[in-house]
Design a binder for these strands. Structure first.
Lengths: 233, 233
DNA sequence: AAGTGGTCTAGACCACTTG
DNA sequence: AAGTGGTCTAGACCACTTG
C-alpha cells in the first residue's frame, strides 16, 4: 500500500497543527488552496480535509472555511446540572450576584465559537453563584441576540440564566469541554480562591433547533467542587 | 437542506439491514450495483456505502465486497473513553510507560472507595500515557485481587489496563467525578508540567456484575487536554 | 477475465458567507 | 462578485479476490 496523495495533504495539515503553527480556531487552507499547492484535484484535497474532520482535528463551515478544532479528546458523559437545584437539594441557600449584564463585542475565541465575525455584538452576562454564601460557580455567558432578544431585560437573581434559556430556547444539543486552569486575578476576586489555585473550566456551546444559542464559560473552584458523572451500562 | 442522493441510498441499505432482510455478514450490493439501481455515478453510491462504513453498519473488503457488520454493542453517546483509540484516531502515536505494577496496601480514601479495611492488599498500577511522546494522562489504578487475579502478570505496554479490564471484567457501571488540582511534585515528574499547574483529576469507580472492580485516578495536564462531552437531546 | 473496493481527475451546479 | 464547502458526474487506473 503506497502513500496516497490525500494522505500526504492530510499529514501536512496535521503537522501544521501539531507544530503549533495553526492553533485552535485558526483558519486551515481551503480545498482550492490545497488543490493548487499540491497539484491535485479539488476532490483529493477535499478528501484530506474530510478525514481531518472525521478525526475531530478541524471543523468546517460552508461559505466560511475550515478551522482547527478546539482541543478535545474523550467523550464521557455529564449530566447537565442545574446549579440552583443542586444547592437547594443539599438544604443549602442558593444566591447569585450579577456583575454584568450588557452588550459585548465578540472577538477572538468567543466570536469563533459562536461562528460570528470579529466585533459582532452579543449579549453578555457575568454572574457568580453561591452555596451558603460561598462562591461555587462563576458563569460567563455569551448569548446570540437574534435567538434571545430579551436576554438583557431579565432579572437573573430571580431565575438563573440556565432556567431562562431552557424556557425560551429549548436545548437541542450541547457540546462541553472540561479543562483545568490556574486562577487569574479576576477568578481570585470572583471566587475568593488563592492565586494560582486550580479551577475547573467548563466551556459549553448550546444549540436549539434553530442553531447556536450561547457559549458559556463556567469556572469552579477545583477543591470546592466536583463534577459527577455516572452511567450504568 | 434537501435530501441528497447518497442519503437516499444510505437509507435504503440501512432499512434492508434494520428490517432483517440483510443479516450480519450478508453481502451488501456493490457500488456498481447501487449506482445502476439508483441511476447515479459510482462515486455517489460509494459515498453512501462509505458513510455506512463510518457508522459501523458494514465492513468492506477490496476485491470481495461489502458486508453487514457484526452486531453492534454501541451504547450511543455514553462511550467510555479509550485513550489509546482517541490518540490513534488523531493519527498520533500512542505509547505508555509503566512505573509500577505491584501489590499495595490500601488505606484512607482508596480503601474507603473500594469498601475495604485499612491495610488490605490490592493490585496497583502507575502508568503514564503519551500522545506523540507528550504525556497526556497519568493513570493510577487500584484493582481488587479476587476480581482480577492475573492483573500483575499483564504487559500494559501491549494492551492498556482499560482494554484488559474490559475483557476480564466487563463494565456494568461507572461512577466518575472530575475536579481540578494543582500539580504536586510527583505530578510534575510524571506529566512534565510546571509546579502548581492546574490539572484535571478524574476519579472513577468501576463495577462489573460481580461488584466493584477498580478505583482509578486519572490525571491530565489541564492546558494540554480537554475532556469533551456532547449530547443531542 | 470479470468483479470488487480505493484513489484520482477535471469538470459542474449549488447554498452560503464575505467584501 | 469572489470564495467557501457540499454534492455529483463520467470517466480512469489500480490492487486485490474470485471463478
Amino acid at each position: 500500500m503506497s502513500i496516497t496523495r490525500y494522505q500526504v495533504i492530510r499529514t501536512h495539515v496535521l503537522s501544521l497543527v501539531e507544530a503549533g503553527q495553526l492553533k485552535s480556531f485558526d483558519r486551515v487552507p481551503s480545498e482550492n488552496e490545497l488543490a493548487e499547492q499540491f497539484s491535485v484535484s479539488r476532490m483529493t484535497a477535499r478528501k484530506a480535509l474530510q478525514s481531518l474532520l472525521d478525526s475531530g482535528v478541524i471543523t468546517r463551515v460552508r461559505g466560511k472555511g475550515s478551522f482547527v478544532a478546539d482541543l478535545q479528546v474523550t467523550g464521557s458523559s455529564l449530566r447537565i446540572t442545574n446549579i440552583a437545584e443542586d444547592v437547594r437539594a443539599k438544604g443549602h441557600t442558593f444566591s447569585s450576584v450579577v456583575h454584568s449584564l450588557e452588550e459585548f463585542n465578540a472577538s477572538g475565541d468567543v466570536a469563533r465559537r459562536l461562528l460570528l465575525s470579529d466585533g459582532e455584538a452579543v449579549f453578555y452576562s457575568d454572574i457568580v453563584h453561591f452555596d451558603n454564601n460561598l462562591p461555587i460557580q462563576w458563569e460567563r455567558r455569551y448569548v446570540l441576540r437574534e435567538q434571545v432578544p430579551e436576554y438583557l431585560a431579565q432579572d437573573f437573581n430571580l431565575r438563573t440564566t440556565h432556567d431562562y434559556l431552557a424556557q425560551v430556547a429549548p436545548l437541542a444539543a450541547v457540546r462541553s469541554s472540561i479543562s483545568a486552569i490556574n486562577a487569574d486575578a479576576k477568578a481570585v476576586e470572583r471566587l475568593d480562591v488563592v492565586p494560582q489555585e486550580a479551577c475547573l473550566l467548563v466551556e459549553r456551546l448550546t444549540e436549539s433547533r434553530d442553531g447556536i444559542v450561547a457559549f458559556s464559560q463556567l469556572i469552579y473552584p477545583g477543591t470546592r467542587h466536583k463534577l459527577g458523572a455516572s452511567y450504568e451500562l
